Simulated scan of single mutants.
Amino acid sequence: MYIRLSREDGDKQESESIGNQRKILQRYVKENNLCLVKEYVDDGISGTTFDRPSFNELLQDIENKTIDMVITKDLSRLGRDYIKTGFYLEDYFPKNNIRYVAITDGIDTYIDSTNNDITPFKAIMNDMYAKDISKKIRSVLKEKQKQGEYMCSISAYGYKKHPTIKNKLIVDEQVRDIVEKIFDMYSNGHGSVEIVNYLNSNKFLSPTGYRKTGLVQDNTWSKSSISCPRLYASEVA
């Protein structure tokens, strides 16, 4: 049994949840008197790539002749790249005597069925769906950024995430003095090397160390540590 779920599939939709996929697959195995050898689960990994930990494990088991059948809830669980999906369905699985079943799509490579004939079209539609969702996600993120929302997972040094307002940054008072000192030195003509040496000699908190611990500790500053993106100009604060 192979199970996959990613954000593009709508991880809040119960119909595609890991638990629901598992129930459908287990019921199919039981109703068809099949022997379940192993369950493979890739949670949170896009179907547009086939470089997935559990899928790679499945391929290794195929090479080792451990399994002779692969079952998924539907074809999109196998993948959303129609070229690579076609490779596995039309070339890899047959060469390795693997029976493939996509339950809700009615696909079974051991049975002569019209559902098998339209499998390439289903693969193309799955591919198009993934690309469409990806475009929509990028569009939403871009619009939120235009509205001043901070969409990165890690806050820029000198800021921290607002405790109650999503995607909003506020000044991190714990390191405010350090950031202001950097700007003060730069505005007074000090070069980056001089600023870095000053910060290291005074054992000021570095961005890397602060992200890891949230505490003041001795960490090495570098020229890249004091680069000044527009964010530091308080555009989103």
Rank of each mutant, 00 (worst) to 15 (best):
residue 236 V to D: 03
residue 230 R to W: 02
residue 79 G to W: 04
residue 74 D to W: 01
residue 78 L to A: 04
residue 109 T to P: 11
residue 71 I to Y: 05
residue 50 F to N: 01
residue 78 L to P: 02
residue 108 D to W: 09
residue 67 I to T: 07
residue 36 L to M: 13
residue 179 V to D: 02
residue 118 I to G: 00
residue 28 Y to H: 12
residue 9 D to G: 04
residue 209 G to D: 00
residue 69 M to G: 01
residue 81 D to M: 05
residue 61 D to N: 15
residue 17 S to Y: 00
residue 172 D to Q: 08
residue 215 L to M: 11
residue 233 A to S: 13
residue 79 G to Q: 02
residue 154 I to N: 03
residue 96 N to H: 15
residue 174 Q to M: 04
residue 209 G to V: 02
residue 235 E to P: 00
residue 35 C to R: 12
residue 224 S to L: 14
residue 210 Y to K: 08
residue 48 T to F: 10
residue 156 A to C: 04
residue 26 Q to K: 15
residue 165 I to G: 05
residue 146 K to E: 12
residue 59 L to A: 07
residue 117 D to F: 05
residue 82 Y to H: 15
residue 165 I to L: 14
residue 221 W to N: 09
residue 96 N to G: 05
residue 91 D to T: 14
residue 6 S to M: 01
residue 4 R to A: 05
residue 139 S to V: 02
residue 4 R to K: 14
residue 45 I to K: 03
residue 2 Y to E: 05
residue 12 K to G: 10
residue 169 L to V: 04
residue 86 G to Y: 02
residue 108 D to E: 01
residue 137 I to R: 08
residue 33 N to S: 14
residue 82 Y to R: 06
residue 97 N to Y: 13
residue 188 N to F: 05
residue 234 S to T: 10
residue 181 K to N: 06
residue 225 S to V: 12
residue 9 D to P: 10
residue 44 G to S: 06
residue 23 K to F: 02
residue 190 H to N: 15
residue 137 I to N: 03
